[in-house]
Design a protein around this nucleic acid. Sequence first.
DNA 1: AGTCTCGGAGTGAATGTTCATTCCTAATGT
DNA 2: ACATTAGGAATGAACATTCACTCCGAGACT
Lengths: 191, 191
Amino acid sequence: MLKTEKRDEIIRAALEIIAEHGFHGAPIAMIASRAGVGAGTIYRYFANKDILISVLYEDIEDRLFPYILQGYDSERPVRERFLHLGKALLQYFIENPLDFRYVEQFHGSPYGAALRRDRILGARENRDVFHEFFEEGISQQMIKDFPLTVIFDLAFGPVLYVVRDHILDVVKLDNVLITKIIEACWDGIRR
Amino acid sequence: MLKTEKRDEIIRAALEIIAEHGFHGAPIAMIASRAGVGAGTIYRYFANKDILISVLYEDIEDRLFPYILQGYDSERPVRERFLHLGKALLQYFIENPLDFRYVEQFHGSPYGAALRRDRILGARENRDVFHEFFEEGISQQMIKDFPLTVIFDLAFGPVLYVVRDHILDVVKLDNVLITKIIEACWDGIRR
DNA sequence: AGTCTCGGAGTGAATGTTCATTCCTAATGT
DNA sequence: ACATTAGGAATGAACATTCACTCCGAGACT
């Protein structure tokens, strides 16, 4: 019944190594030894490396969305909700830099390009939260009338770049700065 | 005297293949055949693949900056200059999608991480234009007072994401939309 | 209770492939 | 003729994937 345990170890190890060394510098043998399993074992859980890589990505989304939705209240005013979503996103990646590094590499690579039509952050059930939120904001005339995709880019593009800088240690983010940044994002999309 | 010619072919071929298939799916043999040269020839021009990859990146910057600076007039008002820079950046990548795909992959990879402290767009002489521009904008109280890095993220993060969407064909950008987008970026950073 | 059998999870050495790089020969120019 | 440049087969290293084997626990049998 401990199936999950080994599988989790493999996923954790793969995340660590790929985030740090890229898809390149992450041979199966290395992942296996970091996970404390035999190389062959990985193939008992994942048909091949590509599939491991995709599953890993979905795994991150499955942790990210619940985190963001914590304390999200769709009854609150638009601006307040935006600040919540933006901050939560920023915070999640700051707290989980490996996830960020991984997502970043994944998106830039051909693996990620396969996700094409699916929006940058998620395409599962949860995605609807963002969807609905922005659509409501637009119809309430609180948010500029752009295609949804563009609104995403305006709203969260800066957030992701700021996270990168924080991880690369070129900015030091504290709570005050974070709030100011998300407010600036809001200025970008609000009417 | 045709030294340059073969070299350019190699660079072009490498750009095409890497942009499309990633650093992965771009074996030297494939680059060579696309360039119409022998595999060994590549090594007459580039010591190894890593160096080819870095040179390729620098090459892109060397084309990007002159393009952006065309018609840039540091005497014009801050807002106007910002609109110029933003549009030019967007336009360059729309016109050169391979360059964009390449830069994107490069940044997300460990190669790019080596550029750490160097700012996201350039670290050569030209970089100063952006530098100076934002510093001036801040001291004139036209632009919000954030660390320079953050200003970059707020200003150009959205632009790069929009370009990605355009290339992935999830938005259709026309001149009107482009202008509106850059204006929204301005709203994000202006006081 | 003790012994035996079976099945499936786990292993890592062996395999075959893919690749960057080298190096010797051919071609080209001077 | 000589020097320089190009070519691409040959080389060896690195890697993903496979597979023959080990190990272990849960039943079955005595």
